[in-house]
Design a protein around this nucleic acid. Structure first.
Length: 474
RNA sequence: GGUCCCGUCGUCCAGUGGCCUAGGACGCCGGCCUUUCAAGCCGGAAACGCCGGUUCGAAUCCGGUCGGGACUGCCA
């Protein structure tokens, strides 16, 4: 049996990290088994669905590298893979179920239904307990599935093991609304049957719906797929991942300078592990051993700190030339204007040093702004801590002389000149160099000083050392 | 309230009866290196929710208990 899995987002918002993680596991499973990963768009909610979100979802999935072999955009034997184009199919399926007696029209009023729910509530029963086939069956209203009461629904969840629901706890749920549109349960189940989905791996929030889907599938004359209910994702405060936790849509990560490989790697670790001691690994390594049966049952907390660390790992592992081109837009953004190729040489000179100091791409820009723009003010704390000290003016004036006499303006020569100065003045490197760092970069934190000066150029470096002397004197 | 799910360091995972004086990773603390910051290296604090039972032996099996979560719609 060829594995066929799917991810079926609703285009009512950006692709959520939880959905992305579910997509990722499905993708890994398909890849591992040489199966097909299908992308379907569940847009039955016509009110909230938009083409903009649909595009965003496709972009996010592509960005993460989760390519699908069948479905929206790439086609396949089942139409355009949007549920909105299959209403006639769902209506036909519902009609067949009514004809076979598996489903029935329900024209009871909302008030009647509410009364039944209240009654169940008062008797401490499942809320849907009394919502069952009424005595008389009409030919209009919503269509409900008639849930067989003779046996429980039992299934073997790939991650959770055997799960069982008593029939009396499953209400006769609506499959087709009175306006003729399908509910999620019907559309999703019919599609899974028609598309011959073999494994449904989705969030644990759908676990209580699973017996309904199984019953529907059987009523449709098909046999159900294997299910795997993935643990939910939570925020660092232990609460359900929500907007308060900042980025929950994948595009945000792309826009904030995360690398898709890093996000992929991190997401794969939420509820799964490749082995006991590796946390950084390639897609292929994951594909080689991934199995849904190994997915954890525990909910996972999404940790932005670990993701950032992971991103740093991937940035450091990048090819230097790739880092240069990837970082460029972030540098230009931080500088505030495009940087031409001549000016770009300044970044080039320190790129390797910046690369190992970068976790998130925007940081690469922040570190080198001083190479392109004169800073307005010195970092206040740095100035107070480093510059307001006896002897600093002397260090600056002496350095000024030494630097002025450096002939070939390269890091090694600059270092030689400054080291000579330190020795003569009897200063330690930390003490003697920090004032120069503040003078040249405006901050007490920067890429290594000699290389920074070399990248900045002799003229600008001397200007800044001079400026610091003036500021100190005043 | 009802149904279902879950319970190993703060967090993510490893662990499927003895290899566990519980391992790795992030984070945290300390040290080394060092021109700052990173990176790297070394070291440290940090967990089997609780109570019973089974067993020669339990993080691992069973029961209970407590705690957390999801669902409970003519949303998905």
């Amino acid at each position: 049996m060829t594995v066929r899995v799917r991810v079926a987002p609703s285009p009512t918002g950006h692709l959520h990290v939880g959905t992305a993680r579910a997509a990722l596991f499905n993708w890994l499973y398909a890849r591992h088994h040489g199966g097909t990963f299908i992308l379907r768009i569940d847009d039955t909610d016509r009110e909230r669905s938009t083409v903009m979100f649909e595009e965003d979802i496709l972009d996010s999935l592509r960005w993460l590298g989760l390519d699908w072999g069948e479905g929206i955009g790439v086609g396949g034997p089942h139409g355009d893979y949007r549920q909105s184009s299959r209403y006639d199919r769902y209506q036909q399926a519902a009609a067949v179920l009514v004809a076979s007696g598996a489903a029935y029209y329900d024209n009871r009023s909302p008030d009647d239904l509410e009364a039944l729910r209240r009654r169940a509530e008062e008797e401490h029963l499942h809320p849907g307990h009394y919502i069952r086939r009424p005595g008389s069956v009409g030919t209009e209203g919503a269509i409900r599935l008639s849930v067989p009461q003779d046996q429980p629904v039992v299934f073997e969840d790939l991650v959770r093991g055997e799960i069982s629901f008593e029939a009396r706890d499953i209400d006769d749920f609506v499959i087709l609304r009175s306006d003729g549109t399908p509910t999620y349960h019907l559309a999703s189940t019919v599609d899974d049957v028609d598309y011959e989905i073999t494994h449904v791996a989705r969030g644990e929030d759908l676990l209580p719906s699973t017996p309904k889907h199984i019953l529907l599938t059987r009523a449709l004359g098909a046999s159900e797929p294997r299910y795997a209910h993935l643990p939910l994702l939570f925020g660092t405060d232990g609460k359900k991942l929500s907007k308060r936790h900042g980025a929950l849509s994948l595009v945000t990560y792309r826009d904030e300078g995360y690398l898709p490989d890093a996000v992929f790697n991190y997401l794969s670790l939420l509820g799964w592990s490749i082995d006991g001691d590796r946390t950084v690994f390639t897609r292929d390594e994951a594909i080689a051993v991934f199995d849904l049966i190994d997915v954890s049952r525990n909910p996972a907390v999404f940790d932005p700190d670990k993701l950032a660390w992971m991103n740093g790992e991937y940035i450091r592992a990048m090819d230097p030339s790739e880092f240069r081109s990837v970082a460029r837009p972030y540098v230009e953004s931080a500088v505030g204007h495009p940087v031409d190729d001549v000016e770009w040489a300044r970044f080039d000179a320190v790129a390797d040093l910046v690369q190992e100091r970068t976790r998130l791409l925007p940081e690469a820009g922040e570190q080198v702004v001083f190479l392109f723009e004169d800073f307005e003010d010195y970092d206040r704390a740095a100035w107070d801590k480093v510059m307001v000290k006896d002897g600093v003016l002397g260090i600056l004036t002496t350095a000024q002389e030494r630097l002025a006499s450096v002939e070939t303006w390269e890091a090694a020569d600059i270092e030689a000149a400054l080291r000579g100065m330190l020795e003569e003045m009897g200063l330690g490197a930390a003490k003697g160099l920090q004032p120069l760092r503040v003078a040249v970069t405006g901050s007490s934190v920067s890429p290594p000083l000699f290389e920074s000066m070399a990248a900045l150029g002799k003229e600008r470096t001397l200007e800044r050392v001079e400026r610091a002397q003036r500021e100190l004197a005043s």
